[in-house]
Every structure is written in structure tokens, then in C-alpha cells.
Design a protein around this nucleic acid. Structure first.
Length: 426
RNA sequence: GCGAGCGUAGCCAAGGGGUUAAGGCAGCGGUUUGUGGUUCCGCCAUUCGUGGGUUCAAGUCCCAUCGUUCGCCCCA
């Protein structure tokens, strides 16, 4: 019988590691709700159409990375490859645009893309995302970015690099695109094969190619920032000014192009050098056309997503997780004692302590050993004589001291215990 | 989808064609049948991801397959 393994590109998050996830989630909840973002949970799968229309048929995400299948009702279903499309779908479906004022939404959960796994990239991965819908104000872009920066900072991440760019509006991009194609076409033969292919499909992406020769050619390419209309350029200036005023450190990277079709104006990425080839921890930008594309009214919006695996990779490099510890470890031997131990454990738990019970009925020596391993502050001991007298022996493991306490008194001594345990752990 | 490296116990591993597969950590048992974290002793892979092949002989060489890692592409 061969054991079944988790599918390629998926993995289990085991108890030893879960602390990072809980910490990140708790921090996200705190920082985002403090900025008046409200959590939304949308389905993990949607009609394929949603992503095809929202993300763009020409993108790699839609073209070759989607988990798409036909369900029993012959509908084409896709496991969500990102969070924005679903959030916007919900925004439109529930007519949240009619509530007046911008909506701030955030989410967190698994996304699915059919790719070859590598460092910082899996088939099921997790994102925290935030969307600010209903404002075209440049301050909205900055507010969104600032919240992301705040979150990463609160998690203690340093030496991250913030890159900002403006890809203008549709007209700007069309103008730039033809400028770029005009520039690159004479160099066609010198470009790497991938980039040659992209020249017709998605020329802007050639700019961030990693091939040295292509990079060299791109160095002298026209900049999108020069192709922006005066209005778009002024807008980008205001974003930069506001970022500076907030003390956000960033650099303008005119070659930063985000992969999804729906971006306009502000695009930004937060990168780290400690992640291998997948350097981006957070990516986002403005997507003014998406809501109407998905059947809602013209609604400007801006948002971002953080890759949780990548974030946690960085966190793990930063500091180890404190080991799990339990306050009390209950050991017992003998029928009556074992019976009473259940009740003692329950009393202590109800008094607010974490309590692990030894179920082995093996020699006390063995049970003590396990108490140590559990990182217990104290061992609660029940043997025949304790069972007889309705007491327990309480042994404080760090000090090695031991006292006799009536089982009935355990709960009333909770405060005293708490002080000792805190002192122990300090 | 493409390229490269690697799969030996729960973990880290040595072994690179010659009968019995080092070592360490962890675990289990004992020293201690009611007192831990130390020591000491013992146990812990009929088998090297899987399937096929070459050979008198295969963890060791070859092929395939699966998994994994890293890179390309792409992205968070």
C-alpha cells in the first residue's frame, strides 16, 4: 500500500510552523482594520469567465496557469488565481458601490496557479490583499501603499525595496507601446527568444527581462514616464509627493510593469533580496477599468496583494518561533488517580491555563520526562496516595520545588500560579 | 512549457559495482517498578522514491517514472 502524498506544489503547514501564519494573520487583521479596511471572504472558485475577463485573456495567469475544470453541471469553473477579481465581483454583485463613499476591503486565503514550483512559488499559495474601491484620488493610492508598508514594518521586516511607477491610462500606454515597439524592432534579432515573442504580444514586459543582452538594449529604450499625458504625469507627481511626506522610502522604476491587464497609473512592488528569484513580496497598483469590465459602474480602485509564503520565508530568516509550551503537565498512575486527573486538568483549563495530560500510565520517571519536553512550568502529580487524600503534588520544574495542594483548591490558587508561571518564563 | 541538481530511517547524513547498509540527532527500553532536564547501556533500514534493464554481483551503472530543489518563463 503506497501512502498518498500531498499534490505537487501544495504542502502542509505543520504545528511547528503555524505560529508564523497566525502571527501574520493577526497582524494583518489589526493593521488593516485600524485603517478601516473590512474583511471579505469570497469563494475559492468562480466562473472561469470572471478571471478571463478580469485578469485578461492574454496574460500568462489566465492563458496557462489556471486550475480550470468542468463541474457536474457542465459549468467551467476556475480555482481563483488571485483575489482581486473575486472581491470586485462581490462588490458589484452586492451593489456595494451604492453605499456611498469608497469601500475598503481586505482578504486573506489560498490562491491557485498551475506553475512549476520553486523557491517562493507554489501551486496553492496564500495572499493577503487589500482593495480600496471608489476613489480616484492619488491619496487613495498612497493610503493603500502606506497600509502595506505599515503591515510589513509591523512584522519587523527590514531592508525591503519599494518600487513605484506609473503606467498611465489606456491612451498613455497605447502611445508608449508604439514608441517602444518602434525602438525595439530594429533590435529584434538581438533580443532573447522570449522577448522577441513578447514584442507583439506584450512589449512592455520586455523591459524587465533578466537576459543581460535584452537589458542592455532596454537601457536606452524610451521611458513610459516620458509618454505620460500631462494629467497622468501630474497625478504621479502627487502620489510621489504624498509618499515622501509620509516618509515612505521608495524609488521610481520606469520599467516596473505589472503582469495583469487591469492596472493603470500607479504600479508598485515591494521586493526583498532574500527570496531567491521570486523577489516580490507585495505587488499592486491602480485598476480603474476593472469594476466596469466586470459589469459594475465606472469605479476607480487601487489595491495590492502580499504573498504570505514569501513573507513567512523572510520572517523565518529573521527570528525563530518560540517553542510551544504548556503551563501544566498532569501525570498520574493508578485507576483512581487517572480518573481524578481528568477533572484536575479540566479545572485548571477552566481557570485559564494550558494543560496537557499524560495518557501513558507509564512510570512516573517517564511521565516527568515528557513534562519536560512539553516545556511545562509545573507538573501536577496524582498517585495512589494523592487519590486517597484528594490532593495533588505540584512540582515547579524550573525550581524543583514541590508542594501538596488539595484538588479543590487548584482553581482558587490560579492567580498565584499565574504569577509564578510568568516569573518562570520571563 | 523548458533547463540543471538531488532522492539512503521521523530529521541530518556516509557509502560511487563485491557476501552482514557508517555515524549523529530524535525516539523507545533499561540504569531509577512514585520524581524530570545529566550520565551510562541496549534497541531502532531483510533495504536505499518506484518500475524496468546491464552484470556472476546494483544505494552504487543505464533507461523510464514519480517526487523534490534551484533556475527560465511568470508572478505574490
Amino acid at each position: 500500500m503506497t501512502a498518498i502524498q500531498a499534490l505537487r506544489g501544495t504542502r502542509d503547514i505543520l504545528p511547528e510552523e503555524i505560529g508564523y501564519w497566525q502571527h501574520v494573520e493577526a497582524m494583518a487583521r489589526q493593521i488593516l482594520s485600524r485603517a478601516a479596511f473590512r474583511e471579505i471572504r469570497t469563494p475559492l472558485f468562480e466562473q472561469t469567465e470572471l478571471f478571463a475577463r478580469g485578469i485578461g485573456e492574454a496574460t500568462d495567469v489566465v492563458g496557462k496557469e489556471m486550475y480550470t475544470f468542468t463541474d457536474r453541471g457542465d459549468r467551467s469553473i476556475t480555482l481563483r488565481p488571485e483575489g482581486t477579481a473575486g472581491a470586485v465581483r462581490a462588490f458589484v454583485e452586492h451593489k456595494r458601490f451604492a453605499t456611498g463613499g469608497p469601500q475598503r476591503l481586505w482578504y486573506c486565503g489560498p490562491m491557485f496557479r498551475y506553475e512549476r514550483p520553486q523557491a517562493g512559488r507554489q501551486r496553492q499559495f496564500h495572499q493577503i490583499g487589500a482593495e480600496l474601491l471608489g476613489s480616484a484620488d492619488p491619496r487613495a493610492d498612497v493610503e493603500a501603499i502606506a497600509v502595506a508598508v505599515e503591515l510589513l514594518g509591523a512584522l519587523g521586516l527590514q531592508s525591503l525595496r519599494m518600487l513605484v511607477n506609473s503606467v498611465g491610462d489606456r491612451t498613455d500606454r497605447a502611445r508608449y507601446r508604439s514608441q517602444l515597439v518602434d525602438y525595439l524592432t530594429p533590435h529584434l534579432a538581438d533580443l532573447d527568444p522570449d522577448s522577441q515573442d513578447r514584442l507583439t504580444r506584450n512589449p512592455l514586459r520586455i523591459l524587465d527581462s533578466k537576459v543581460p543582452k535584452t537589458q542592455e538594449i532596454c537601457r536606452d529604450a524610451p521611458s513610459i514616464l516620458d509618454a505620460l499625458s500631462p494629467e497622468s504625469a501630474a497625478r504621479f507627481d502627487r502620489v510621489q509627493q504624498a509618499l515622501t511626506d509620509l516618509g515612505v522610502v521608495y524609488q521610481v522604476d520606469s520599467r516596473l510593469v505589472r503582469g495583469l491587464d487591469y492596472y493603470s497609473h500607479t504600479a508598485f512592488e515591494i521586493q526583498s533580496d532574500d527570496l531567491g528569484a521570486q523577489a516580490t513580496v507585495c505587488g499592486g497598483g491602480r485598476y480603474d477599468g476593472l469594476v466596469s469590465e466586470l459589469g459594475g459602474p465606472e469605479t476607480p480602485a487601487v489595491g495590492w496583494a502580499i504573498g504570505m509564503e514569501r513573507l513567512i520565508l523572510l520572517l523565518q530568516q529573521l527570528q525563530p518561533l518560540p517553542a510551544d509550551r504548556v503551563d501544566f503537565y498532569v501525570i498520574s498512575r493508578g485507576d483512581r488517580a487517572e480518573q481524578q486527573a481528568l477533572k484536575v486538568a479540566q479545572d485548571l483549563r477552566q481557570a485559564g491555563f494550558s494543560v496537557e495530560m499524560d495518557l501513558s500510565a507509564s512510570a512516573f520517571g517517564k511521565q516527568f520526562k515528557r513534562a519536560d519536553r512539553a516545556g511545562a512550568a509545573a507538573c501536577v502529580i496524582l498517585g495512589d496516595s494523592e487519590a486517597e487524600t484528594g490532593t495533588v503534588q505540584l512540582k515547579w520544574l524550573a525550581a524543583g520545588t514541590q508542594e501538596t495542594i488539595a484538588q479543590a483548591d487548584l482553581a482558587t490558587k490560579a492567580e498565584q500560579f499565574r504569577t509564578i508561571i510568568q516569573g518562570d518564563r520571563a
